[in-house]
Design a protein around this nucleic acid. Structure first.
Lengths: 193, 193
DNA sequence: TGTGTTTGCCTAATAGCTTTAGGCAAATTA
DNA sequence: TAATTTGCCTAAAGCTATTAGGCAAACACA
């Protein structure tokens, strides 16, 4: 009957943990209430709706991920930076599958524009500084890297690369070799056949 | 009161249409029952559960997509094949966003192994035949392409590339140029710095 | 320290989705 | 046409989401 000390903050954190433990789809207002041993309706003072909760968890994950990426990038450049940056995404996906899934939640444009997603793009550009691509090629490269990381983490988490050789580890390393080579050798034109 | 003629087949097809119209998350046994003007419980003779329904829609989409990809690949090779293949995925995502999302549903290993997902991998290998990569590099490349297409379609559908320049169209074309160049010039070793 | 206001968590209630059990009538088969 | 199968229905229970309104703990201040 006492007060538990609910906070939007605490709910979001607990939601992120729940996501990692049980999957992001399992994150529900009810499940969270259960976790705090509190009635469901009580959460509605701190969170507008189920959708709001999920969005907040997504934003939280995006922030956390951007912080990690920024740290990883500090003092690195070139392939070293590329690898460190990429590893942040992959490691996050493996250590925090739920948060990682949350970070992939579809956000409405305004929310997305105000999210740390923007920082992610900037950080990717920072990585590319080491490769010296002119605009608009740099933007294309940003999108390529985003697609690769997003896709790879997603597929790996879905189990796409398990139970088959070669190791996902090896593919990841070779993929980064390939991307590094590609960025150092970015084609200027539809390379003639 | 007459019989409507429900079938697992028809339910799956209608589910796929519903997904495209309203989003895959909106596909529910109830919504489908409404669409057939039938009581919810009636669907349970044709579908085991909500999860079963979604899985069947996912499998349907994977088949359809593999068929389209196979068609597109016929008679093509090299960059021509790569482009046609890639375009199938992107176009499918834009014409059938719901089915496309369904195709990205996490399947349990056995289901995935028996799905058309296997054909997708084979078709990707067919594309790579034009680039003559030795194993295990070919597998790495299959995974890279899978990641890029998966990620790009997903991000584009989420609106990631709208409202910003350059055009998503242009990025897609340049990305394929880049991937073509990369595959023709696949690095053999951690290219020394 | 007492008083008043805020506010956190509760009860109650409505509504939608999922799933199971059991029934009746239409379609199929003999 | 009679027997059997089977398709869709009613009924019911359980879970999630959400809103409205209430009471008491925490806080703010005199």
């Amino acid at each position: 009957m006492g007060r538990v000390g609910l906070t939007t903050e605490r709910l979001v954190r607990a939601g992120a943990e729940l996501a990692d433990e049980a999957g992001f789809e399992q994150v529900t207002v009810s499940a969270l209430a259960r976790r705090f041993d509190v009635k469901v309706a009580s959460l509605y003072s701190h969170v507008q709706s189920s959708q709001d909760l999920k969005t907040r968890i997504a934003l939280f994950a995006l922030e956390e991920l951007a912080d990690l990426a920024a740290d990883a990038l500090a003092g690195r450049s070139g392939k070293d930076a590329l690898t460190a940056f990429a590893d942040v995404y992959r490691d996050y996906g493996r250590e925090h599958p739920g948060r990682s899934a949350a970070a992939r939640l579809r956000l409405d444009p305004e929310t997305a524009a105000a999210s740390a997603g923007v920082r992610h793009a900037q950080l990717t550009r920072a990585v590319l500084r080491g490769y010296d691509l002119p605009e608009p090629e740099q933007t294309h490269a940003v999108r390529l890297l985003g697609s690769v990381f997003h896709g790879y983490v997603s597929l790996e988490l879905a189990g796409g690369f398990s139970h088959s050789l070669p190791d996902s580890e090896e593919t990841w390393a070779r993929m980064l070799d390939a991307l590094d080579a590609l960025l150092r050798n970015w084609p200027t034109r539809p390379t003639g056949a």
